[in-house]
Simulated assay, not measured.
Amino acid sequence: MKFDDMLQEFLNTLLTLPEAVLWLFFLAENMLITALVLLIGRALQKHYTPVAPSYRYTSHEWLLCGITNILNTAVTYAGFWLWKHHIISIHIHLSLYIIVDFIILFLAMDLLMYIFHFIIHKTFLYNLMHRLHHQAIDPKPIDLFVLHPVETISFGGLWLVLLIVYPFNLYAMILYLTVNVLFGMIGHLGLEPLSERLRSNPVLKYIGTSTFHHQHHQDIHHNFGFYTSIWDRLFGTLSQE
């Protein structure tokens, strides 16, 4: 059986599952992602620093992390429901179009999140919800999930709107979601795994590195991008440090 057929069969199986089982499945998926971020993030900190940072996650951080997982589960289910009712269309086939769809997803989401991120920093929304995330001046892995609930739903909403307006390839979506988690984890390590030489590379200098996002946590007026520094460069919000 071809991999495309196996994936289609898996999706067909999801369609037959009871609602409660679907919710548990999507919750388990999000909890697994969170666990991997915390474990791999900690391992990277130990690998790149002579002495691993000494910190413990607080009960408040665990609570917000749990709420974020539940809301991400709701976003996942919403996407499934929209696909089930043919509001979201996806393609399942291995081809070079996967790369094209991934690039569109990567850059479109980066732009949409830049705009949303800039708006919440420049309006009353910062004090209302985003200040919570910026309590972490020196971020650590769990801070990827320490978000105001409205912010979590808003980021998820941007993702769903993009899927509604364009029929993406499922493989490209999976690749994008994987890259999204990797960028989120690396951006909240509190250290830079890439050397200065790599970060100065003509191509890599446009990537949103850990240093790029760490600078944003220390200077809330610059570096609003997520995956790249392209939009900060275009709109004059790039930190000069």
Rank of each mutant, 00 (worst) to 15 (best):
L24V: 13
P202M: 09
I186S: 01
Y55G: 08
L191Y: 01
S95C: 12
L125A: 14
L105C: 09
G190F: 07
Q8G: 00
I115F: 06
N12R: 10
H86L: 03
T211P: 00
N72Q: 05
L182V: 15
F116I: 06
N201Q: 03
R42D: 12
M6H: 02
A108Y: 07
D232L: 10
K122G: 01
E241C: 00
I153Q: 02
F106A: 08
I70S: 03
M113V: 14
L170A: 09
S54W: 00
I142H: 10
I174R: 01
L63T: 13
V161F: 14
H133M: 08
I99R: 04
L44R: 03
V51M: 10
I120Q: 07
L7S: 00
T16S: 14
L38K: 07
L82A: 14
L162K: 12
H213A: 04
E192Y: 04
N72F: 01
A78R: 08
I207Q: 03
R56N: 11
F224E: 06
W159D: 06
L94H: 10
I153T: 13
T152A: 10
G190P: 11
K2A: 05
Y57A: 02
H216A: 04
L22M: 13
Q8W: 01
F102P: 11
S195C: 05
G79K: 10
D143M: 08
G208M: 12
A35D: 02
H133P: 12
A35H: 06
W231D: 05
A78C: 15
E9I: 01
V165M: 11
L112F: 14
T73F: 04
N30V: 03
T228E: 09
L147I: 03
I142L: 05
S95W: 12
A52C: 05
V51H: 12
G225V: 14
I119Q: 00
G184M: 05
Y48W: 15
